[in-house]
């Protein structure tokens, strides 16, 4: 096996730490950290899915939180109607997200650059206002999820179980994205990002591959939404507000676009900084903003890039 570099070690240490969160939280009677890290692993899954298209495919989707919302509402609405089967909810969430991504991607992927960003944002805003208009399901106020999803063999009532399910989903997403970005499909996505003109010249019509990537990412993200609804026992349009989409982009950029562990690094950093900084001041973005700016200006590969640079220096 290849020896691990600094980012490999960091990722491994981080994952081991994540595995140990529930017993540690119980030992030190700090339930708060279990909840914080549940949010971290759920949002990491969402960030991993965005990284697939943004980082590897160069598609800056500014509406990715919409899929979190779709997943969350799949749980909220089905639970409202008395359907609590987790598998059915999961299937529903993924199917709706896939159809939405297919329709939105089919239109938006015909554009490039700023237009693509604006169109994905516009679609996400449309869905946001659809959710606001769902007065039966609480409209702007959202609705409470009275019963968490039941997966037969396990339920998500126990916070530790929910945490480990979310962690397992996150690791599965990480594994899937690792396989995918090194597959034939993944190399086409990367090629389209790197030089789409050359892709056409060597014989690739990249549109359908980019569309497929867009659908995979949206579907994967909806799973995070299912978990998030269970975690907060509540769904509301705020989940898919455009600022949430912005947060996801920040997580990916902060961690390092187009790197395997980038979304993990980025989400951990983002949510922990939010937690720490908002303890100092309510306007925590005043501190977070310059930090992000410095990172983007001086380390273009994000946290992953910083770690990689360290490795290169260390190897000599």
């Amino acid at each position: 096996m290849k020896s691990l570099d600094a980012r490999g070690w960091t990722a491994l240490a981080l994952i081991l730490l994540l595995v140990a969160v529930p017993p540690l939280a119980r030992t030190f009677d700090q339930n708060f950290y279990l909840l914080l890290f549940t949010r971290v692993v759920i949002m990491t899954t969402a960030a991993i899915s965005l990284n697939l298209i943004l980082g590897y495919g160069g598609m800056v989707s500014f509406g990715h939180a919409m899929y979190v919302g779709i997943g969350a509402y799949a749980v909220g609405i089905s639970s409202f109607h008395g359907l609590n089967d987790g598998w059915a909810q999961m299937a529903l969430a993924m199917a709706v997200a896939a159809v939405a991504a297919l329709a939105i991607g089919a239109m938006s992927l015909r554009t490039k650059g700023v237009y693509f960003i604006m169109i994905t944002l516009a679609f996400a805003q449309m869905i946001y206002f659809v959710a606001v208009g769902l007065s039966r399901y609480g409209g702007d106020d959202g609705l409470t999820v009275k019963r968490r999803s039941d997966f037969g063999l396990f339920g998500l009532k126990d916070p530790a179980v929910l945490y480990y399910v979310a962690l397992a989903v996150m690791l599965a997403a990480l594994w899937l994205s690792w396989r995918m970005v090194n597959s034939r499909f993944g190399l086409v996505l990367r090629g389209a990002k790197s030089n789409d003109r050359r892709m056409a010249a060597i014989g690739f019509a990249t549109y359908r591959y980019r569309l497929a990537g867009f659908v995979v990412a949206g579907t994967m993200c909806a799973v995070a939404g299912v978990l998030l609804a269970n975690f907060s026992d509540f769904v509301s349009p705020a989940t898919m507000h455009w600022t949430r989409s912005g947060d996801l982009i920040v997580m990916v950029v902060l961690g390092g676009m187009g790197s395997l562990f980038g979304p993990l690094f980025g989400t951990v950093a983002f949510l922990l900084l939010e937690e720490v900084l908002s303890g100092i001041t309510e306007a925590w973005q005043i501190i977070f903003g310059p930090l992000l700016l410095a990172l983007v200006l001086y380390a273009r590969g994000g946290i992953d890039g910083l770690l990689a640079k360290r490795t290169e220096r260390g190897d000599g």
Partner: peptide, 15 residues
């Protein structure tokens, strides 16, 4: 790869 069939192969390591 562009001339070796479709590229909807998601898991096998292309390298």
């Amino acid at each position: 790869q562009a001339h070796d069939g479709h590229s909807f192969r998601f898991l096998a390591d292309a390298r």
